[in-house]
Design a protein around this nucleic acid. Structure first.
Length: 474
DNA sequence: TAGCTCGTTGGACAA
DNA sequence: TTTGTCCAACGAGCT
């Protein structure tokens, strides 16, 4: 028997916990692994995403080579459909397998391709390997999609997770192939020197993922409920980019979490995987949410558009140390602490009254874990126009949030080094220091570090007034 | 079906 | 300094 199956890898760059691959191996196919760079029709691949993808693909490709296979990279000048068709023809492919994505554009594309393959009499099958549950099958008791996390979580957490397939990697029979293109041909690395921050912060490989897991379990995972909100500590797992690119699968991860037998890991860490499920569930059922509010009534919210303010926010020059530290962490490392994401998000949409889509677009371009479901859900949550949203009157105070969560001041000192000699008392509100204290710390406000772009009480009032105005309007 | 309870992540102010 | 109370809103989800 010499039939060959193309396994189409997308955001599931792993050989374990992979249903599509396991199915093809179990069925006795020779495996031809294939990847094609997706340039979204409406959403170009973010810069930070490209950086990560370059190394993730190189690593994945070498994992396959080590086993005797060859990852085929589709020609990026072709559309996905064209690239697939040419490979299918060249290698006389008899089956095409992949793991599903539930992003609206991917669903459209995959449906189209599946129809084409069926029409060509090529076996086409997709699997749910990237989520714990298939969002098409999850509903509440009235048969409608969940819109609140807690009932969603309660309904699913006791459910049996379909176990990850067992696959002996040594037993894979790889199709003989010569790759015409290498990962480098995709030109993913940024032309501009972004700095070494990404390289210092990450090891974007499968072994990097495993090291991250090992450093997190079991102690840090157990401390997660107490430390998760502390950006001055290593309180979180930092597994988000690995999960996004599928270098580690959610089932293998959940299995590891549950194996600790620690109730704090279950209620704290495992639960986070269900937030990821929830975000994907919402994206699947409400496919307009990447650009428009979940609830239509918020569509005419009176945002103000001010590119100068957006720029100050992006560059970490708002004059609020907690906000600026976070925005600079993002720019430098491609990642931002979760608590900080809420603070900068609230600041942009409430104090500055800029549309949440602006924030989502910036995150999309700069986060190494940029993920349509999570990004959409997070921004709508913070703007209060989405599922389980923060109520309008919840305006994060960037000063007290800093004092409460960057307890040691280490976060601000790291990312806003111009403030590092300020006493902790003033670190989150440098404008309150006396001129003498500022001089002693070597800070001249307006020169070394900006004055606040808006006074906090004014920002808060602005947000509440805008909401009141919108309510009168509608 | 009507009614009840609940909602990841807060702030401001008073005592 | 810490703790309690109100803010004020509404739909989801369930019984």
């Amino acid at each position: 028997m010499s039939k060959t199956a193309l396994v189409w890898f997308r955001n599931d760059l792993r050989l374990s916990d992979n249903d599509a691959l396991s199915w093809a191996v179990d069925e006795g196919y020779h495996i031809l692994p294939f990847f094609h760079l997706e340039e979204g029709e409406s959403l170009p691949t973010g810069g930070a995403t490209k950086w990560w993808l370059h190394f993730a693909l190189e690593d994945f490709s070498s994992q396959i080579s080590d086993l005797g296979g060859q990852l085929i990279i589709g020609n990026p000048e072709l559309t996905c459909d064209e690239a697939l068709k040419s490979v299918i023809k060249k290698y006389s492919i008899e089956a095409v397998l992949w793991n599903r994505s539930y992003e609206p554009e991917h669903i459209k594309r995959d449906t189209r391709i599946k129809a084409y393959l069926k029409n060509q009499d090529i076996h086409a099958e997709s699997f749910n390997s990237n989520l714990l549950f298939d969002p098409t099958k999850v509903t509440n008791k009235s048969g409608t999609p969940f819109k609140v996390f807690t009932p969603f979580w309660k309904s699913l957490k006791e459910n049996e997770i379909c176990p990850a397939p067992e696959l002996d990697l040594g037993s894979i029979s790889w199709a003989k192939a010569i790759a015409p293109l290498s990962v480098a041909d995709l030109n993913l690395l940024p032309k501009i020197k972004w700095g070494t921050g990404f390289y210092d912060a990450w090891q974007p490989t499968r072994s990097g993922a495993m090291e991250q897991v090992d450093s997190f379990l079991p102690e840090r995972a157990s401390a997660y409920p107490e430390q998760r909100d502390r950006p001055d500590l290593e309180g979180t797992s930092k597994l988000s980019p690995y999960l996004h690119f599928g270098q580690i699968g959610p089932r293998e991860l959940l299995t590891k979490f549950r194996a600790t037998g620690d109730p704090k890991v279950e209620s704290g860490v495992s639960r986070q995987l269900f937030w990821r499920e929830f975000a994907n569930h919402l994206l699947y059922h409400f496919n307009w949410t990447p650009t428009k509010p979940l609830y239509e009534k918020y569509a005419d919210f009176p945002w103000e558009e001010d590119p100068t303010l957006v720029k100050a926010w992006q560059q970490g020059q708002t004059g609020y140390p907690m906000v600026d530290a976070a925005m600079r962490e993002l720019w430098t490392t491609g990642w931002m602490h979760n608590r900080a994401r809420m603070i900068v998000g609230s600041f942009l949409v409430k104090h500055l009254l800029q549309p949440w889509q602006e924030g989502a677009a910036w995150f999309w371009d700069t986060l190494v874990d940029a993920n349509l479901a999570n990004n959409t859900f997070g921004w709508q949550w913070v703007a209060g126009c989405g599922a389980d949203g923060a109520p309008y009157f919840r305006v994060f105070n960037p000063i007290t949030q800093g004092q409460k969560f960057d307890v040691t001041g280490g976060y601000v000192r790291k990312w806003c080094p111009e403030l590092k000699d300020l006493p902790l008392k003033y670190l989150h509100c440098p404008w309150e220091a006396t001129p003498l204290e500022l001089t002693a710390a070597g800070v001249t406000l307006g020169k070394d570090y900006p004055h606040p772009v808006i006074e906090h009480p004014d920002g808060r009032k602005k947000a509440l007034d805008a909401f009141a105005k919108w309510k009168d309007m509608s």
